[in-house]
Write a protein that binds this DNA or RNA. Structure first.
Lengths: 242, 242
DNA sequence: GCAAGGGGAATGTGATCACAATAACAGGGC
DNA sequence: GCCCTGTTATTGTGATCACATTCCCCTTGC
């Protein structure tokens, strides 16, 4: 491969480099790479099993090897990337048992986050109204994506919907765990939607919004559980047939 | 600090270096560092808030900076280590809300793993008997540790008990998520035990073993849930008083 | 046709250095 | 004593190189 050295920061450079400018923190390159790669994975832009390498990733993002290494290391730790026995890196592949386990983890955790969001906005009607409005807008985008058959937009809108709801739970640790699960499911989501066609997708988003508006925890819990189980069963079906 | 360069592997070295010897895979230094540091954290050997740095960790393990960096990166990704806004590294500190969230995550996930272990050994009485025997031995070690007031041994026996049970669930993904949670709880476990004295610790291990022997899923579920909630409430109490 | 093998390209890992930012500390002013 | 200030040590990050291993492709032999 061509060796095109990435120029290192030197004292002569006029740019503020990592220094703060107007109070903002220094931008860390490997965090940027991580964020972008992570987004790509959650949105399902990378097909499962696709190979990845430190140098390739570095070249794609126009950075040196170090930030690429760090980003990959993090995503491997979170199970979004997989390492072969010979230490090659690829987008994680799905297996039926993995789908099953991820479902078992997602259902109670995400249902809990949703109910927490309900609880947290119980004494703040304004906040709840704002949340409902936000969710409705996202769900509208989602419907439009289905109409257009836009798989990418659908995938993004779906994750946006869930995380907009979960963010209101004000539970960063739980949210982190759930994000880790989505990181592992992401790539297949997209594959399944693509195979089945976005029109085939059903969800419980309307029911969830209704439950939220009614302050009905039981109904919300059920809606989220069903939403997840239906979605995951589609992935399971697809991963079973190969 | 003293700069003592770590000699790099060269062609002249007689040792097989990373090469396989007798079919075994090459040992990866950063994995070794990760495993040891991780163990230390889960066992609670590192007090929360304690500072950690790439170079000091490297020096402690007699390795160069790279493996230390990689190990730290992984543990930060898993939430076992924390980064300050200025990117310093420390053992994660506990907050009441964090305890609450971790409890909410641990309860359903670990209960599920326990019940799965029951299900998986339902058609394999031999395996179940072996598991029960294993758990009983560990619980015995645990009791002895309490008698001796040996905090470290208690801490280790406790985690051994849980993971011996969960390992039988044959659910690597779920197990990975739960390990991540323990990685975040580990440091406080130890602090609390130390503060209260191991004698104060109660658990539901005997009940869990009984339920397992009886094939009673409901009872096992309840035992694990109670075990976790009791333990976490102690941590919550301790973290509340500072 | 196909398996075996050989050689070059690519890969993950480790080591080391440079640098900007932050923390730690010492000394002086009050 | 306490706070400010300037200096020094330490820190995380990025860049680059070396190396053993693995992958990939193409040739050779049958």
């Amino acid at each position: 491969m061509k060796r095109t050295p990435v120029r290192q920061q030197t004292k002569d450079d006029q740019q503020p480099s990592r220094a703060r400018r107007a109070g903002k923190r220094a931008p860390i390159v490997h965090e940027e790479v991580y964020a972008r790669l992570r987004r790509a994975i959650i949105d399902g832009q990378l097909e499962p099993g696709r190979a990845l390498s430190v140098r390739t990733l570095a070249a794609q993002f126009a950075v040196s090897a170090m930030p690429a290494r760090e980003a990959i290391r993090r995503l491997v730790a979170l199970g979004a990337l997989e390492m072969t026995p010979t230490r090659r890196i690829m987008i994680a592949r799905m297996t039926p048992s993995k789908v099953e386990e991820l479902t078992e983890a997602r259902v109670p955790l995400e249902a809990r986050l949703a109910v927490r969001a309900l609880e947290r906005t119980a004494c703040a009607p304004r906040k709840r109204q704002a949340l409902i409005a936000r969710l409705s807008r996202i769900d509208e985008r989602l419907d439009q994506a289905i109409e257009r058959g836009d798989v990418a937009a659908y995938s993004k809108a779906n994750s946006d919907f869930h995380f907009a709801l979960y963010a209101a739970a004000d539970a960063p640790v739980l949210l982190g765990v759930v994000e880790g699960l989505w990181l592992q499911v992401g790539p297949f989501m997209r594959v399944v939607i693509q195979r089945l066609g976005a029109a085939q997708m059903v969800d419980q988003h309307k029911e969830a919004i209704d439950a939220l508006a009614a302050g009905d925890a039981k109904k919300l819990d059920k809606a989220i559980r069903l939403d997840i189980m239906e979605g995951m069963s589609r992935i399971a079906a697809a991963s079973a047939e190969g």
